[in-house]
């Protein structure tokens, strides 16, 4: 009798799992193309935001990973580059999108995601002057001239050094060869 119960329970659980995974699979196949196109749309608008002068962008890839985007102006000339920098701040990974011109001078930066302490670390988004002060600075030489926010030193430094490191890497790739 006990043996029979085991069989029954296994069967019921298997059926429930089967139905659940079939539903998940069906929903995934319907929604995934929509989600991907939405993400692409969001990415484009983010790129426009940090480098408004550019007309079009082209992803530069290494294998599957996107290294950075090359931005083209109206006459198909290279205007600059957009890249994503990220680094661990005080309590979360902070991701920043940076637009630079050919020489590496920053056009704008945009904090994409963070989960820092409200009232302290989150001021990198709330205090507009923090992101504004990056404009016109050399992205691969940020050691001076960018002020950290009082009470959010670790968060600010993470943003600054992540941009600095990534910019160095990309400038080497672009100009080094």
């Amino acid at each position: 009798m006990v043996r029979n119960d085991y069989f029954k329970y296994t069967l019921i659980l298997a059926v429930i799992c089967f139905v659940a995974s079939a539903l998940l699979g069906a929903v995934y196949s319907v929604t995934n193309p929509i989600i991907l196109s939405q993400q692409a749309l969001q990415e484009q608008s983010g790129l426009r935001e940090v480098l408004p002068e550019a007309k079009s962008f082209e992803a530069v890839k290494e294998g599957e990973n996107i290294l950075y985007f090359t931005a083209f102006g109206p006459g198909e000339n290279v205007l600059g580059y957009v890249f994503k920098a990220s680094k661990k701040g005080y309590s979360s990974e902070i991701a920043t999108l940076v637009g630079v011109d050919q020489a590496g001078v920053i056009s704008r930066v945009k904090i994409l995601s963070q989960n820092e302490t409200p009232g302290l670390g989150t001021r990198i988004i709330e205090a507009l002057w923090f992101q504004e002060q990056f404009r016109g600075k050399k992205s691969d030489n940020l050691s001076n001239g960018v002020q950290a926010i009082t009470g959010a030193t670790i968060t600010s430094r993470a943003v600054i050094s992540s941009i600095n490191e990534k910019a160095k890497e990309i400038m080497e790739r672009v100009h080094g060869r």
Binding site: Y9, L13, I16, V27, I35, Q38
Partner: peptide
Amino acid sequence: IPDKIRIPCYIVVIASFVGIVEMAMKA
């Protein structure tokens, strides 16, 4: 759902339901 295996059943139901909601919301 039989009493003896209710917890795994609930977890499967809740987790897949949340997964579906998440995907639908994203799309």
